[in-house]
Design a binder for these strands. Structure first.
Lengths: 185, 185
DNA sequence: GTCTATAATAGGATAGAC
DNA sequence: GTCTATCCTATTATAGAC
């Protein structure tokens, strides 16, 4: 067998970086911030990310894509009734965004343009996974796409509005409504 | 009469700054960028904005709030039938966000925390203006608030998703659906 | 693999001439 | 009101010892 692709501590660093980038976006986060958050000197960071800060941001974006695939997209492909998938999804979404407290990593990283390919994949694959789940439940694919897109749109929008107003309930009630719409009203 | 509150060229500068801040967010925009966009030297900028960059960002936020009040919130208070107000609103929104091409200034400025008070006002007053318009049309205030919040949520979310996927049609169809929902289906 | 030290650059901001 | 020149700081990044 090939040697186990050692889970280096790079993964732990990336997790710490994710917390920084998701909240501030690319340019707000400095190498000093990263150094403080990880406990590593600036130079050590270049050992893990030879490409510097853009390299870090892209690693974080790919890490987030993997998380979303595992926690959200894969479960949506299960061969079980639709409502049995939607409820867990809304719970996972609630958890992934800390009940509306944690901003969307995609939304905050987009303006910088760094690592935009995995960022785009997160949104595209999310809509795709939802569409497929709805289609499996007997909904026409065209209607499924509309519903799926609307769900992701509302989740992203609720995060923005909740942050702007300081009212997390906007996120909670949006999630509830989305779940009801997707599961079939 | 009081002398006309001279429309100094500060307004023109603020308009140029708005274009920069809305796209990049606070930290991406440097004084050099601003200098290039306005044609003014860095020092001249401090003549108009003694508080420096934060001062500029807050001026831009207040300018945007004024624009939103004029173009969106005030028309919603008119004493005409609801559908006659919703259609113009969606058209104005389409124009204000360039059909989904131009990002939301609020969403992109929020992470920095600079000028958050007018930014919050933009969202809060928007929801309030929509709620009032729906209430005037005979919808119960509690239901009106839910509908109004959902509309703003979907506009904000559609901008994020359209930007992430590179597909402006997401914004166009979201606007159409929102208009239909608000005008009474 | 992590550190200290340092380079090279760009950032925001100010002083003062015109 | 706009400019040139300058200051100070923070930034990303690299070199090289351990």
């Amino acid at each position: 067998m090939t040697p186990k692709s050692a889970p280096s501590s790079r993964d732990e660093i990336v997790t710490a970086l994710f917390g920084l980038f998701r909240r501030g976006g690319y340019d707000v986060v400095s190498l000093s911030d990263i150094s403080a958050a990880t406990g590593l000197g600036k130079s050590s960071l270049y050992h893990y990310f030879p490409g510097g800060k853009p390299d870090m941001a892209e690693a974080v974006a790919n890490h987030r894509l993997a998380t979303m695939r595992e926690k959200l997209f894969a479960p949506l492909a299960a061969e079980i009734p639709l409502p049995a998938k939607i409820a867990p999804m809304t719970r996972s979404v609630d958890s992934l965004y800390a009940g509306g407290d944690a901003p969307c990593h995609v939304a905050n990283m987009l303006p910088s343009g760094v690592g935009s390919s995995p960022l785009k994949a997160i949104i595209v694959e999310w809509i795709e996974a939802l569409s497929e789940a709805l289609k499996q439940a007997g909904i026409k694919i065209s209607a499924a796409r509309v519903l799926a897109t609307d769900a992701v749109v509302r989740i992203e929008g609720a995060l923005v509005v909740a942050k702007a107003t300081g009212d997390k309930r906007v996120f909670a009630s949006a999630l509830r409504d989305i779940g009801a719409d997707l599961a079939g009203r």
